[in-house]
Computed example of a mutant assay.
Amino acid sequence: MNGSGHEAEAWQWENGPIGRLVKTGYITLRREVEELLVPVGLTHTQWSALSVIRHYPGITPSQLEPILMIERPSVTSLMNGLEGKGYVIRKDHPSDGRSKQIFLTDTGRKMAEDTQHFTAILEERVKEGMTASEFETLKALLIKMVGLFEKE
């Protein structure tokens, strides 16, 4: 029994608010990918950044902020860490003297390529628990939900 005299009940996820369900789903997936990342020595955010930079060579820190959903000081710290590991280099922006462009080094590109399949591993685990139609519906509904709150 807990201090109120009532036995604690197991949390019933299906009765939680949508925000908590989405957060719980995200954290569950994030923990799974973090386990895959331990052997390669990357954090989830570092891994995500390498993927984004791989797809958008020359991206600027201000462009990374909304994609990674982190603030500017965190982007700076993240880039410092990735640069220290030899995964990225920053170069002066050709048309904006106040900005830097971020590029993967050969080592960073190899790391991004060698770990890109982690996303597929997670998606396959999710697909194992639902039908193909359910999976596609889940994706479509999440995309729709995010679109409802996007800032113009």
Rank of each mutant, 00 (worst) to 15 (best):
M1V: 13
G3K: 14
H6M: 13
H6Y: 05
E7C: 10
E7V: 13
A8C: 08
Q12V: 12
Q12E: 08
E14N: 15
E14W: 15
E14Y: 13
N15P: 04
N15Y: 03
G16W: 03
G19D: 09
L21S: 10
L21N: 08
K23T: 15
K23P: 00
G25P: 07
I27G: 03
T28S: 13
T28C: 01
L29V: 09
R30I: 04
R31D: 15
E32K: 14
E32P: 00
V33N: 06
E34K: 02
L36I: 01
L36N: 07
L36P: 05
L37K: 01
L37E: 03
V38Y: 05
V38D: 12
P39M: 02
P39A: 03
P39Q: 08
G41C: 05
G41R: 01
L42D: 02
T43E: 15
H44M: 14
H44P: 04
T45E: 07
T45L: 12
Q46R: 08
W47C: 09
W47V: 00
W47A: 01
W47L: 01
S48C: 12
S48L: 15
A49F: 10
L50M: 00
L50R: 03
S51Q: 14
I53D: 09
I53Q: 02
I53P: 12
I53L: 08
R54I: 04
H55N: 10
H55R: 13
Y56H: 13
P57S: 07
I59L: 06
I59T: 11
I59N: 07
T60I: 04
P61K: 00
Q63H: 09
E65A: 10
P66F: 11
E71C: 01
T76L: 03
T76A: 14
S77C: 13
S77I: 03
L78V: 03
N80G: 05
G81I: 02
L82H: 07
L82G: 11
G84M: 09
Y87I: 08
Y87R: 01
Y87W: 12
V88N: 01
I89V: 15
I89Y: 15
R90F: 06
R90P: 00
R90H: 14
D92G: 15
H93N: 10
P94R: 09
P94V: 09
S95D: 07
D96Q: 13
R98S: 11
R98A: 08
R98N: 06
K100N: 02
Q101S: 07
Q101T: 03
I102E: 09
I102C: 12
F103A: 15
L104P: 11
T105H: 08
T107Q: 08
G108Q: 11
G108M: 05
G108K: 09
M111T: 12
M111C: 06
A112C: 03
A112N: 08
E113Y: 08
D114G: 01
D114K: 13
T115I: 06
T115D: 06
T115L: 05
T119N: 05
A120T: 13
I121P: 02
L122I: 10
L122N: 04
V126N: 01
K127M: 11
S133T: 15
E134L: 08
E134C: 06
E136G: 14
T137Q: 10
T137K: 07
L138P: 03
L138E: 10
L138K: 10
K139P: 00
A140W: 00
L141E: 13
L141G: 00
M145P: 00
V146I: 15
V146C: 05
G147Q: 00
L148V: 05
E150W: 02
E150N: 04
K151W: 06
